[in-house]
Computed example of a mutant assay.
Amino acid sequence: MRHVSDDERRARLAVRHALAVGTQVDSPEAATRAMTVLHATEPATVYLSCWARVESLEIADVDRALYGDRSLVKQLAMRRTLFVFPRELLPAVWPSASARVARFERARMAKEVEQSGLTDNGDDWIERAGAEVLAVLAEAPDGRTAVEVREAIPMINVKAVRTGGAVWAANAVLTHLGANADIVRAGNAGHWRTSRSRLTLMSHWLGEVPSPWDAADGYREIVRRWLYTFGPGTEEDLVWWLGSTKTVIRTALAELDAVAVSLEDGGTGWLLPDDLDEPADPGSWVALLPVLDPTVMGWQGRDFYLGAHREPLFDTRGNAGTTAWVDGRVVGCWTQDDAGVVTVGLLGKVSASARRALDAEASRLTKWLGGLRIGTVYSTPAMKSNRLQV
């Protein structure tokens, strides 16, 4: 069995994730395909993940891809997370990871609306509510905000209270329809770093909507792309990232003729059969990645790039904060002061040349942001700490 060292894994990461000098790509679309998908829970992450990988990126480049060409599309999928997908990957994710989320959301919503006293038949209520939402959006090709949709449909414009907490029925309906690919987050009425999405029908947004693939084919294609981006990865990595089952993962790996390799921690990873060669040495590199960047969130087993720094770089729910990288290892995080100046905080010692390179990258990001401050709800202990070696 071929052995893949942690050094090789870090070299692969640099090249495949378009982070090392000479490997960066030329467009938001290329950056997204390199990463399989981009996290979009926080709108700014999409822009900052592209900035880290695309040479000479402008805000308008990302806006064009998202809202002009619509070559990148936001879709609720793996682990009930909002991602940006390359348009051509949508038919694969709709019947697989997105459908799994949609089924879970529907079952939960049916139970909750019955327990809340809104109806005696949750499935019927969901069908009627969904039909009303689709009818309202059918009359608005340019889309409507979630608030406008709720105000237009009295049956979902409620706060349903049940034992143990409150359930916003309207949000649950919209979440289900989004996972089901009936509706999509279209243009953003707010600033690029904030979320004021307008909802519209998928058919309005894409024009001709491609037919979904078979679920098994969809899972196999997503696993194939993940292996190219993140391989070698373990079954556990894939189960976690895809939010699926071992059966689904093992079937996809078998159909792809994936090759088992041994990892430095003693585990078994998987590579595509045409991706067994060692990568070229990427040389020295640094990167500043945003909250929930797909590189940081790509694996469940993260020791080969986090080392001892897992706890300070993630919040209590496992969400990654900002990260600073040197040669494939996370060495700290970055924050902004009140004036928007980016500062790198270290969790340990780095070489003088690495420190200079990180500071230069921080200056470049400060200039690109132009005084704008990026807020987040995912602050980590490292981001909050005043004890970092700044």
Rank of each mutant, 00 (worst) to 15 (best):
L288E: 03
G328L: 13
G321R: 07
A360Q: 13
A360R: 14
E208C: 08
V158P: 00
L372S: 06
R106D: 04
L358G: 07
A179M: 12
Q115S: 07
D293Y: 12
G207V: 04
T194G: 10
R106M: 09
L137T: 04
A354V: 09
V390I: 08
W299M: 04
L66I: 06
D214N: 09
W94R: 11
E29D: 14
F314H: 06
R10A: 07
G122Y: 01
G345P: 02
L388E: 08
A92P: 01
R106P: 01
A11T: 06
V296C: 01
P212N: 15
A189E: 15
L82S: 10
G187T: 01
G117L: 00
P294H: 13
D293S: 11
V101I: 14
P212R: 13
E88Y: 09
D281S: 10
A179Y: 13
E127C: 01
D123G: 00
G301I: 01
I222G: 07
P282C: 11
S203W: 12
A352K: 09
F314A: 03
L292P: 00
A181C: 06
T45W: 09
E105I: 00
V344A: 05
T380D: 12
S27M: 13
T343P: 01
V377E: 12
T251F: 03
L369H: 09
G332H: 13
G298V: 03
P290L: 13
R150E: 00
P290Q: 04
W285P: 00
S98K: 14
L177E: 10
W285S: 02
K349Y: 04
D6M: 05
L289P: 04
V259G: 02
F85K: 06
E29G: 04
T32H: 13
L313S: 08
R12M: 04
G233R: 11
A308H: 13
R317C: 01
V25E: 08
K349Q: 06
D63T: 05
V209F: 00
I222M: 13
D293G: 05
G298N: 13
G233L: 14
V286H: 12
P282V: 00
R373P: 01
R12H: 02
H3D: 14
K384W: 03
N121V: 11
A52W: 12
W285F: 12
F230V: 04
W125P: 02
T343A: 14
L347A: 05
A324H: 11
S353T: 10
T81C: 13
A131F: 08
R80C: 01
W51Q: 11
M35Q: 15
G22V: 10
P95A: 07
E151P: 00
D337G: 06
P282L: 08
S27C: 11
P279N: 12
R373I: 10
A320C: 06
W334I: 11
G164L: 11
S5A: 10
R108V: 03
V377G: 03
G164T: 09
L82E: 10
V84Q: 02
Y228F: 14
T194Q: 15
T295C: 12
S353L: 03
L313E: 08
L201D: 00
A140I: 07
R196A: 11
E132M: 05
F314M: 05
A146R: 15
D120I: 04
D26I: 01
R150H: 00
V344P: 01
T194E: 15
E29Q: 13
A60T: 03
V331K: 11
L199H: 00
L13K: 05
N121A: 15
G328T: 12
V331T: 07
S98H: 14
Q300P: 03
M297W: 06
W51C: 12
E361A: 15
A65F: 11
